[in-house]
């Protein structure tokens, strides 16, 4: 455990080195939410202010704001590409020779990055949420808040395992950038990041609900939005836990199978 703590502390220090870089990225991150909200304002105006997909304009603004919070947990920038390049360039052998789990190491790095991110992005988030407070739902009670936190953590775990799996494709393919691009496109749509899945026909929604993507963003967002009853919030968390377990097992199997093919190219 001590070695992971050391990795964690080093990763924390690394993230604090490039502070300007961080603030530029955090500032830019709010641009899409502004454009999306403005688009939906025009859509609701054209629709005569009616509910769309069971959501009024305030709900829609809240949805996109809360999607940002959920994505802050679930997104794993550069995890897949790092894993794939470590495999391709032979860097992986450096970790295989050490008494440390490579995926555990990557997980610890991401955890440190997330913690620093949450600390440093807290002020910009608070400002944006304060400006948009009239759109947001009431602050949840203790029980709902606990469910929200659990759902967010599980969304982060789903995001980690899916991205790690994409990265592990590097054992079988020299170049995975195209798979990553394809995956991000599919995920943007199927996770409900592009628009709430409630706007899709019920049959399409049913198919999507059998995939993990919606449990990485859409359903946790509904839990935060308090658009699910307590019982169905628990159900969402239950399905998330199942997906985390399944994805962890698949990742473990892919890692073992991949290692058998690994030839440690590079100097």
């Amino acid at each position: 455990m001590r070695k992971y703590r050391t990795v964690f502390m080093v990763a924390l220090a690394d993230r604090l080195v490039y502070r300007v870089d961080f603030f530029v990225s955090t500032f830019l991150m709010f641009i899409p939410i502004v454009t999306t909200v403005l688009l939906w304002r025009a859509i609701y105006s054209g629709a005569g202010g009616e509910n769309i997909g069971g959501l009024n304009y305030s709900d829609m603004v809240s949805y996109y704001l809360l999607v940002m919070v959920v994505r802050a947990f679930g997104s794993m920038p550069r995890l897949a590409s790092t894993v794939a390049s470590d495999i391709r360039d032979g860097e992986l052998r450096k970790y295989l020779l050490q008494p440390i789990s490579y995926l555990g190491y990557q997980g610890t790095l991401r955890l440190a990055h997330k913690i620093i991110y949450f600390i440093m992005a807290a002020a910009p988030y608070a400002l944006v949420f304060w400006i948009c407070r009239r759109f947001l739902p009431a602050w949840p009670d203790g029980g709902t808040l606990c469910l929200c936190v659990v759902s967010l953590v599980l969304a982060g775990a789903i995001g980690f395992f899916i991205n790690a799996l994409i990265g592990l494709l590097g054992f079988w393919f020299l170049e995975i950038a195209s798979f990553l691009h394809l995956f991000m496109t599919v995920q943007y749509f199927l996770s409900g990041h592009m628009f709430p899945l409630a706007l899709l026909p019920a049959s399409v929604r049913t198919v999507i609900s059998y995939l993990p993507f919606a449990y990485e963003t859409y359903y946790p967002t509904l839990v935060l939005l308090q658009r699910t009853e307590m019982a169905s919030a628990v159900e969402v968390i239950g399905v998330q836990a199942v997906w985390v377990t399944v994805l962890a097992i698949v990742t473990r199997v892919a890692w073992s199978r991949g290692l058998r093919r690994y030839a440690a190219f590079g100097g």
Binding site: I43, G46, A47
Partner: peptide
Amino acid sequence: VIYSRTPDIN
């Protein structure tokens, strides 16, 4: 999806 809900956007 958008235009199934509104006739025009601005």
